[in-house]
Amino acid sequence: MSGKTKSSSDGWGMGFLLVFFPDEHHSNNPIPNNNNSSIHFKSTSTPTIKRTHSNLLLKALSTISICALLFFVSLLLFTGMGTVFLSGSRAMNDVVVAHLNEDTKTDQLRLFLRAFYFSSLPSKSDIVLIFQDERRRLDFDSVIREEKDSFLKLVHSESNSYRTSFLGKKEWPDGETLWGRRGAPVNPTESETGASGLTQLIYGSVVGFDSAELDPENSLAGFFDHVPMSLRRWACYSMLLGRLRRNFKHMILVDVKNSLLLGDPLGPFRARSPVSVVLHTLPENNYSLGKHGKKNSEKSRTNGPKQITPIVILGGSRGIRRLATAMLTEIVRVAIQHKGKNSVTESSVLSRLVGNEFLLKNMNIDLVMSSELIQRAKSDVDIGSDDSV
């Protein structure tokens, strides 16, 4: 949004807000006469009380109107933002929020999307991609659309095992997608429905945002000479996750470059509370390669100290939002302590946050530490991806 457009919209908003404030400085009631003040007070006590209640009611209505206006303005601004690469067939319960770092390559994004489409997640979740800026989004545009077209071709082709995994039942909750009109429904064939009662192909939306859309002020710029995407993504979550809080039950925050989503990572944790957060730990030498490209011994991979990885974080939507808010605050705190040096990493901040019992208690989240979902992917595909989930 340009500065001119922003200022004009702000001016419109303030002008509209003035409509809701009652005029409290003018009244048709006469000023009481001091000579018969007792008689006047007795005769007008009931109207005075009514006027007081009326003023309080008007103020309450004004406050409610302002809050409603701000909500609808923020909703309007949010739904004018972003790029919809694929409109899903229905509203989803889960969402994957994937960010692309500055050095993420097109092949890495292609592999990430291909693994995502062949997992079971597209039938259960939307995916939101966060780009560094508009230029980077345009660089990846063709890759995203190519993988989307390949996905739709497989889903719409009849009588194949891949298609059947996206068939939904009548009991599936219906509803419009958050990202605009849902895609045209595709009815299954007679052989696919059978006695199962399957009625429609179900898949989620694919949406992209520039970081400037979600964090227009670049909130962390005053604390660092350069704000990497690994840190700025936490500032982007403030608007994004806040807007999505009532639309999704579970969330996955993931790094495109260093991860693959295989199967259904949320499966073992869907029954947990909305404030649950699953963090993954790795031994220090986990799956490290020797000089000749061979894996180190089993002993070195299991006896090293545990460390928390920010590559993938998942859990209930409420818990993820609380963690994101705490992470942004902790990033600022650490940046101030380091006097703006660029040595701050999200891994160190996350480890520090989790290691502080006082901060954990204040966050009020159900923290789950797991190492079961982290697997090595580089031995299978060598395009720069370090870990898979």
Rank of each mutant, 00 (worst) to 15 (best):
121 L>F: 09
94 D>R: 10
114 R>M: 10
163 R>M: 09
179 W>S: 05
154 L>I: 07
130 I>S: 00
173 P>E: 08
117 Y>G: 01
155 V>W: 06
148 K>A: 10
158 E>D: 14
76 L>S: 14
177 T>Q: 00
179 W>K: 04
148 K>G: 01
85 F>T: 04
150 S>K: 12
82 G>H: 06
159 S>G: 09
108 Q>N: 09
162 Y>P: 03
188 P>K: 04
126 D>N: 05
127 I>H: 08
164 T>F: 00
178 L>G: 08
121 L>A: 04
172 W>I: 15
167 L>N: 03
168 G>H: 07
94 D>G: 10
176 E>Q: 14
98 A>G: 05
75 L>A: 15
147 E>D: 11
86 L>F: 10
92 M>R: 07
80 G>N: 15
141 D>Q: 08
120 S>E: 12
62 S>I: 03
65 S>V: 01
82 G>I: 09
68 A>H: 14
133 D>S: 00
123 S>V: 06
181 R>P: 11
80 G>D: 14
104 T>F: 03
185 P>L: 00
165 S>M: 12
123 S>C: 08
144 I>Q: 02
182 R>P: 06
129 L>P: 02
165 S>P: 03
93 N>K: 05
164 T>Y: 05
126 D>I: 07
121 L>K: 00
149 D>V: 06
109 L>H: 08
189 T>A: 10
90 R>T: 14
88 G>K: 05
130 I>E: 04
